[in-house]
Amino acid sequence: MNEVTVFIMGKGYRVPAGLTIMKAMEYAGYRLARGCGCRGGYCGACATVYRLPGDYKLYADLACQTTVRDGMYIAQLPFTPAERPTYALENLTPDGKTLLALFPELARCVACNTCTKACPQKLEVMDAVQAALRGDIRQVAELTFDCVSCGLCTMRCPAEISHHHVWQLARRLNGAYLTPRAEHVKTRVEEIAAGKFREELDKLVTMTKDELVAAYKARQIEA
């Protein structure tokens, strides 16, 4: 078996090549609780930092999506302490000052771009910070849509910004206030409340299996 050596929090283990960092830790005998969630790159629980031999850089990535390399030094971040201010969406307005008022530390950004380099999703994190400073909520929402809230940018940020909380608020403001509502959804909700489909559904729930099969076969399929 082709093996590599990885250093988990400084201690060396031989593990099969080709494993993800997460599976390598398990192979070595770790039973994960912290640092492991969906195992598919969506939940952001497995934020991990690592170094490679002979390289000064501190890399950041998700343990479930990153393959081990020989000589890798690995440490997982079990938790990212981050301040989330208290707010109620219905009391906020989607104007240029909202984000900065709730997250004044945004103004401490020194445009060092460390956040962008730390992002496992390869998002333009610093551009989003700058958009937040300009009060461009829509752009923040779009730039950060693929954020998994792993907290790696927050842990690396010299301005101590709690990025994922800013992004979350920006996306909600964008969805609730800056995007037109779907009129057809509103109409359908009203139709249901008025009982438009009640009779048809009353009939359907009492149908025999044969009647249902016939109705199912007769459905028109939208092209």
């Binding site: 996306r171 403001l173 964008n174 969805g175 995007t179 509502r181 779907a182």
Partner: peptide, 8 residues
Amino acid sequence: HEDLGVMY
């Protein structure tokens, strides 16, 4: 969901 701000 629209009320809560989900970006569909």
